[in-house]
């Protein structure tokens, strides 16, 4: 509180940037010689943005360069990914993206880039668990009752989500697949309004990231049925997992990873991976992620290989589910 304002503060004003200019043929060994732009495909203040800003600081420290977070919103994150795919592969423009990277090919048939071909993966960042939650006076008390209730009242039950391509919509698709029913989906413009209507009892249930739901679950404003990870989570230790309850189809997490354009030299990717690894061991990052109900990715996943495998596996998983459901991003 009594700290003076360092000059670096003013430098932080520089949130907006174009592709780092020039330097296309710079020496990879000398990297980084300039500020690095970290492109976030979603709004400032959202969960992905928060995760990004958490890791940006320790990464910048490790690399010895400034990292500028730039929010490029639009079309489920494909505008930002398209921008980075076309950027110079010199390591000065890096993309963070979540599960949406793997669902985009299914959602957007005319996608201008290929998630596997046009990028090099840097490493996984975190895998945010999701929770199945309902308005507090909704009849079912657990997943089993929910399944029966949904079967009997398939016409009237409403399932909220945060819009096309949002993690909550994807999780909803898995729930429908698990139960073998077609539910009435009520889309919202983001998680905030959806959660407001869930707390207000206007809609019945939804599935969303712990980042958004943990506080309301703890306060009892909404009730939670299960968490979608294989293991229970620290923030909500009493909550069973979907696997425990036999909902094996509904295992999903909002995984995040870092990407650079495909032509980026391996030497630069290594440096970025190294910095990410250090950042994810930072105590402040671990603590802040715990508050959000998540944990940093384990060290063995913070590698390009593990990341690429995850991306491939997820594209193979989601593309048929999305095509079958008829959902489209345009």
């Amino acid at each position: 509180m009594h700290r003076r304002i360092p000059l670096a503060t003013l430098a932080c004003l520089s949130m907006l940037t174009l592709a780092a200019c020039g330097g296309g043929d710079a020496d990879p060994a000398a990297y980084p010689e300039d500020d690095i732009t970290l492109v976030v495909p979603f709004a400032a203040g959202g969960p992905t943005d928060t995760v990004t800003r958490l890791i940006a600081e320790p990464m910048a420290e490790e690399l010895g360069a400034e990292i500028i977070v730039q929010n490029v919103e639009g079309a489920g994150g494909t505008v930002a990914a398209g921008q980075v795919a076309e950027a110079d592969g010199n390591g000065y423009e890096v993309l963070i993206h979540h599960i949406g990277m793997s669902t985009a090919p299914g959602l957007y048939p005319d996608l201008a880039y290929d998630p596997l071909e046009d990028f090099k993966t840097v490493g996984l960042v975190t895998d945010v668990p999701m929770t199945i939650v309902a308005r507090k006076d909704f009849e079912p008390e657990n997943l089993e009752e929910l399944a029966t209730y949904v079967e009997e009242n398939a016409d009237t039950v409403t399932l909220a989500n945060a819009g096309v391509g949002a993690a909550s919509q994807l999780c909803g698709l898995l729930i429908e697949q698990q139960l073998g029913v077609d539910l009435t989906e009520v889309p919202y413009d983001g998680t905030g309004p959806a959660l407001t209507d869930l707390v207000g009892g206007q809609v019945d249930f939804m599935c969303d990231q712990t980042t958004n739901t943990a506080a309301q679950i703890q306060s009892g404003d909404i009730k939670a049925y299960a968490v979608t990870t294989p293991e229970p989570i620290e923030a909500l230790p009493d909550l069973p997992t979907t696997a425990d309850e036999g909902w094996t189809d509904v295992e999903v997490g909002v995984w995040h990873g870092l990407y650079v354009p495909a032509e980026t030299p391996d030497e630069i990717v290594e440096k970025l991976t190294g910095a990410l690894e250090v950042a994810l061991q930072d105590q402040n990052v671990i603590d802040s992620m715990a508050d959000l109900g998540t944990t940093p990715a384990p060290a063995e996943d913070v590698t390009p290989d593990a990341h690429t495998a995850k991306l491939q596996e997820q594209i193979d998983l989601w593309t048929p589910i999305i095509e079958e459901s008829g959902v489209t991003g345009g």
């Binding site: 003013l10 004003l13 520089s14 907006l16 940037t17 174009l18 200019c21 500020d35």
Partner: peptide
């Protein structure tokens, strides 16, 4: 002052 990071000279001018 605001440090908007718009390049002064664009790609076409070798900036």
């Amino acid at each position: 002052l605001l440090r908007l990071r718009l390049p002064l000279l664009g790609e076409w001018l070798g900036g």
